[in-house]
């Protein structure tokens, strides 16, 4: 993968809003943003209602993903352009789902809603009607998803990239600073993880930094290009953003997103935890 295949610009998107075979999808946790105005022709996916299983603590399975895309009118032949708020966190998360379930023709809109807004581009409240399809999802590609046991085994062995803010990494905060801090699990990070906040990869307008800048950021942070990598955050959406950077923009081969992330790891009994600003020892 590369920037040319994984990313589209706002200019390109604006010119291709009516191109057949393209489906623009806004992905957010709070879909009131979509309801208040969205990119013309875009449909919405609600990260929580549509992409999380309502009962099990997991995301939608193969059948649920197929049912969702069929219901929204996305076919296997469509090229899906994802964008959203929060600097594309949830759009990047959805991108990872599409790849996980074998939909190769998927791209992120660089800068997401934020750049669209700051550029003062046009929104609409019109909701498009798309005919239902019979979408077929593939079996999940677990080469891009990490589970907890694998993460524990990766301590001191693989690159572990903690993409939360420095205060969350050090254990001074339990959640991003726009959320209340009370939580039950322990604070800190996985020992030997390097701290590269997701925000390092983004410009202020939400677009991704250049490949040269990105390579420098992860290189200087100590990411070993010869090792496999697992990225994590608190619930797996910010780490999808970094997974996208490492795998899809920079083309690293073996990069997984640990979607259980700190919410799971910091609640496990008996696993090692490091506190403070340093990675810590294995």
């Amino acid at each position: 993968m590369s920037r040319d295949t994984a990313l589209v610009s706002a200019d390109w998107a604006e010119e291709n809003l009516e191109t057949p075979g393209l489906v623009f999808v806004e992905v957010d946790e709070d879909t009131t943003a979509y309801d208040g105005g969205h990119i013309p022709g875009a449909i919405k996916i609600d990260w929580k209602k549509d992409l999380q299983d309502p009962v099990r603590r997991d995301f939608v399975n193969q059948e649920q993903f197929a049912a969702l895309l069929s219901e929204r009118g996305i076919s296997n032949d469509d090229t899906v352009i994802l964008y959203g708020g929060n600097n594309n966190w949830f759009a990047a998360y959805a991108y990872w789902y599409f790849k996980l379930y074998g939909h190769e023709a998927v791209k992120l809109l660089d800068g997401g809603r934020k750049k669209w807004e700051l550029d003062a581009r046009v929104y609409t409240k019109d909701v498009p009607v798309r005919a239902k399809t019979s979408y077929v999802a593939k079996a999940p590609n677990l080469e891009i998803r990490a589970f907890r046991d694998e993460v524990v085994q990766a301590i001191g062995v693989k690159n572990l990239v903690d993409v939360r803010s420095p205060d969350e990494f050090a254990g001074r905060l339990l959640a991003p600073a726009h959320l209340p801090q009370e939580q039950s699990q322990r604070a800190g990070h996985i020992p030997t993880a390097i701290s590269v906040p997701w925000s390092k990869a983004a410009n202020e307008d939400g677009t991704f930094k250049s490949d040269e800048e990105l390579a420098k950021i992860y290189g200087e942070a100590g990411l070993d290009g010869g090792k496999d990598t697992i990225a994590y955050c608190r619930i797996g959406e910010r780490s999808s953003h970094t997974w996208f950077v490492l795998k899809e923009l920079l083309g690293h081969e073996n990069v997984k997103n640990y979607d259980g992330s700190w919410t799971e790891y910091g609640s496990l009994i008996g696993v090692p935890i490091a506190l403070g600003d340093e990675p810590g020892k294995a």
Partner: peptide, 19 residues
């Protein structure tokens, strides 16, 4: 408590949650 639900910002105009 707003914990693992998500990272999107709560409604910014709403009063502080009682929790």
């Amino acid at each position: 408590a707003n914990t693992a639900a998500g990272c999107a910002a709560p409604d910014q105009s709403a009063p502080l949650p009682s929790s």
